[in-house]
Each structure stands twice: as structure tokens, then as C-alpha cells.
């Protein structure tokens, strides 16, 4: 679905005369393959290159060196951009920056409308997308009156209406309350399971990554750690701290009281604790 081949990306700063002032390497010969239908969580400290990575997937940024291929389309070829953006949609951190229209329905229709989809087909897609995120009843309301979590779901519906293969979430829950946070993560999992959409979730919240198929930890534009949540979180506190991460609370508690195995969820904890008491 998504393939990175030795991708390097440099932010080049120039002074007033246009001379190169400084070069920051945000991605450093990154290679990675994401399969169709995978649920990937991306972790890493601030400035580790997570967002730069995400912006390469739908061609908002293009590699300085190397190649990114999305659903068979090379992002460096300008003729491919529309196709890529339709297949890989992106949800950003701040819900307020993503609202473009006066009603929820129009907002969701913005993408497919720009793709030139016929009106009746578009209406069908918009309704379907809104039903999927549970906001169909609000379709005629103003998006500005919605809560943060609801606004983020409008953004997701806007992407769904374009029938994407892949959705990239760039810290979608950072500004939400716990209820909104729960809703967004659940929606992402549902789209992954029911519709087979590939999900790439960038987050600082360790608890949100527990249900992922694979975790990628970034550091200085490279992949520092990679594996299932259990593999990654069993590396121990010291290793994770180096990458600006923590062990999920439940896992940390289990480790502190000496329960065997790497425990990720509350259910696993209760089972393991009962066993230890026997």
C-alpha cells in the first residue's frame, strides 16, 4: 500500500540573499513497507520526523532523495497527485483548521465535489460517510457548533467520501477531551476492521497504540524500533525514555508488581493477577 525506499528529506533554510543558511535532515534514508489493511501506530519524540513522514504519504511533501510509492503511484510524479490524495487522506491535529463549509454536509462534500463526482453519487457518498462516523443527524448543522471530537469525525467523513484506501491521522486526539479521544480511536479501528482501510496513527498517547498491528518508533528521521505493541513495550522503561516515550500505565504497573509477560490491557492484567494469586 505504502512503500518508502531510502527516503531522505531536508528542510533547507535560506538567508535573505537566498544562500543556504542551514539544512535539517528530517527523514534520513527511511525505508518502510506498509501492507494493505494494516493498522500502524507511529511514536517518537517531538521533532523525530513523524509529521514529515506522514506528509510524504499523500504527497504534501516530496522526498529530497529516494522514492515514495502509494498504491502503485510514485509521489514525485505530479500527474499522480490527485490520485494519491484521493487514496490517502489525512486528518490533522487541530479540528478547527479543517472546517471549510457552512454545513456538515457541504463540508464532507468538499473533497468529492472537487473530484468532479456527479451530484447524486456524491450525495450518496456523503450520507454514507456521515452514517459511518455517526453524524448523519447533524448533516444540516453548522460544523462550528460541534464539539472537538465531532469536528474531527466530520474531517474523517470528508475523507471517507473520497473512498480512500488509507487514512493518516496526525495526532488527531491531542486537542480533544477524553470522550472525544475515545471516539476517534474507536472510529479508526472500526474503519480498519470493517472497511479494510489502512490506518496510520501518529500519537503521543501510548494507550492509543495498544490495539495497533505494528508500532513504529521514530528517532532523528529513522526508524529506531519496530514491532507489535507487545514487542515494543517489553523493551523496558529506559529504552523507551530515550525516544521520548513511556510504557502504557497498565503495562508499567504490571511490570512493577512483577506480573509475567508484557501486559497491555486491563483484561490481561486482571487475568494475570488472578493467576498470580492462585
Amino acid at each position: 500500500m505504502v512503500r518508502f525506499e531510502n527516503v531522505t528529506f531536508e528542510y533547507i533554510r535560506r538567508d535573505e540573499e537566498g544562500n543556504v543558511d542551514s539544512i535539517t535532515t528530517a527523514l534520513d534514508e527511511l525505508s518502510l513497507h506498509i501492507k494493505k489493511g494494516e493498522f500502524i501506530a507511529v511514536l517518537g519524540s517531538n521533532g523525530s520526523g513523524k509529521s514529515t513522514f506522514a506528509r510524504h504519504i499523500n504527497a504534501l511533501l516530496k522526498p529530497t532523495e529516494g522514492k515514495v510509492v502509494v498504491a502503485g503511484y510514485d509521489t514525485t510524479d505530479d500527474d499522480n497527485i490527485l490520485e494519491i490524495r484521493q487514496r490517502a487522506g489525512m486528518v490533522f491535529q487541530n479540528p478547527d483548521n479543517q472546517i471549510v463549509a457552512e454545513t456538515v454536509e457541504e463540508d464532507v462534500a468538499f473533497g468529492p465535489e472537487n473530484m468532479g463526482i456527479p451530484t447524486d453519487e456524491m450525495q450518496k457518498r456523503v450520507d454514507e460517510a456521515l452514517k459511518k462516523v455517526g453524524l448523519y443527524k447533524k448533516k444540516l448543522e453548522s460544523p462550528n457548533r460541534l464539539s472537538g471530537g465531532q469536528k474531527q469525525r466530520v474531517a474523517i467523513a470528508g475523507i471517507l467520501a473520497m473512498k480512500p484506501d488509507c487514512i493518516i491521522f496526525d495526532e488527531p486526539t491531542a486537542m480533544l477531551d477524553p470522550g472525544g479521544r475515545r471516539m476517534i480511536v474507536e472510529t479508526a479501528h472500526e474503519l480498519n476492521k470493517k472497511d479494510g482501510i489502512t490506518i496510520i496513527l501518529i500519537t503521543h498517547n501510548m494507550e492509543e497504540t495498544v490495539g495497533a498491528d505494528r508500532i513504529i518508533v521514530m528517532e532523528k528521521g529513522r526508524i529506531a524500533l519496530e514491532g507489535t505493541p507487545r514487542q515494543v513495550f517489553s523493551k523496558g522503561e529506559e529504552t523507551l525514555k530515550k525516544y521520548g516515550m513511556e510504557v502504557p500505565v497498565i503495562t508499567a504497573l504490571a511490570q512493577k508488581i512483577g506480573l509475567d509477560g508484557c501486559i497491555l490491557t486491563r483484561e490481561e492484567f486482571v487475568d494475570a493477577y488472578v493467576k498470580a494469586l492462585e
Binding site: 477531551d177 477524553p178 470522550g179 472525544g180 502504557p248 486491563r266 483484561e267 492484567f269
Partner: peptide, 16 residues
């Protein structure tokens, strides 16, 4: 009900 939550530890202690 208010869209809030309790800490993970509280949730776990509730489960136990």
C-alpha cells in the same frame, strides 16, 4: 457521561 474519564489506574482497580 460528561465526556470525561478517570485515570487508567482507577479503571483497572474498578475491574479488579
Amino acid at each position: 457521561e460528561m465526556g470525561l474519564s478517570v485515570p487508567q489506574i482507577s479503571l483497572l482497580m474498578g475491574d479488579l
